[in-house]
């Protein structure tokens, strides 16, 4: 298929970007979206132009690096996928595809389609962990009784890959689905109880400090999340935060 691509080009974090049109031809419907981008970049390199910078690593839907906003949706017009799992069969010959970086004040553009998502790492560092004695006396986690229901829900929350599609999709650039998932995965397990109050207080404080917006419960993040993280995690975070503040 032959396609017209409208792609955001930005030299560096300081420069002002703009949309630039490109043409690609003979794209196979079996290609992944990133493979199509590879074809375009090869074309650009051969013609002596600067290739388009975009993030990618595993190309199997796990790393969450491929932060592209395609035709107005994070990771494009398919559900439960990252950009590397988006196939060109989702498009038609002659289509014009708009490709932009994830946009949020807390995700500044580094170059072209590459954004800085270290704000997520700082939120994790603020409390997204448990403290475990590793001096040789570590208790076997399998020895702690956990209900199947709680283990399943914690696992569902832990599947969040921190790609940032929730922030990119949210009309308010809210990070609450990400933070809700990271808080939930510990809140549901006994190992997470000891530091529960500090965790939720510190992670929410860091989230607010990074400049993310407020959740208005529109649910777009849940729809666009490649791992199907549920809005229930945001509700759980709200409960945990209220509980932590009532306790003091």
């Amino acid at each position: 298929m032959n396609l017209t691509l409208k792609i955001w080009r930005q030299k560096n974090a300081q420069s002002k970007g703009k949309m630039v049109d490109y043409k690609v031809t003979e794209i196979s419907e079996h290609m992944s979206f990133l493979e199509m981008m590879d074809v375009l970049n090869e074309q650009l390199v051969n013609s002596g132009e600067e290739p388009i910078a975009f993030d990618h690593d595993c190309r199997e839907g796990i790393c969450g690096m491929c932060s592209m906003y395609i035709n107005g949706e994070a990771h494009g017009p398919d559900r439960g996928i990252t950009t590397c799992q988006l196939h060109m069969r989702m498009f038609k010959d002659g289509d014009t595809i708009t490709i932009e970086p994830f946009r949020a004040k807390a995700f500044p553009v580094i170059k072209d389609l590459v954004v800085d998502r270290t704000s997520f790492e700082r939120i994790q560092q603020a409390g997204g962990y448990i403290s475990v004695n590793t001096s040789g006396n570590t208790q076997d986690a399998n020895a702690i009784p956990i209900s199947k229901h709680a283990a399943d829900e914690a696992m569902d929350a832990a599947t969040c890959i921190g790609c940032g599609a929730c922030v990119a999709t949210c009309k308010n650039s809210s990070a609450m689905l990400f933070v809700g998932a990271k808080i939930s995965q510990y809140a549901l397990l006994p190992q997470g109880q000891v530091e529960a109050v500090d965790r939720v207080n510190n992670m929410v404080a860091q989230m607010d400090l990074e400049g993310f917006g407020n959740c208005t419960n529109i649910g777009a993040c849940e729809v666009e999340c490649p791992k199907g993280i549920s809005l229930e995690n945001i509700a759980r975070m709200n409960r945990e935060f209220l509980k932590a503040n009532v306790k003091g």
Partner: peptide
């Protein structure tokens, strides 16, 4: 506050694909 959380707006944003008009 929410509007200030996204300085550069999307050139193309398909909000109706994932949320209701009322919620947005």
């Amino acid at each position: 506050k929410n509007r200030s959380s996204r300085v550069v707006k999307y050139a193309k944003n398909n909000g109706s694909a994932n949320s209701t008009w009322m919620s947005r």
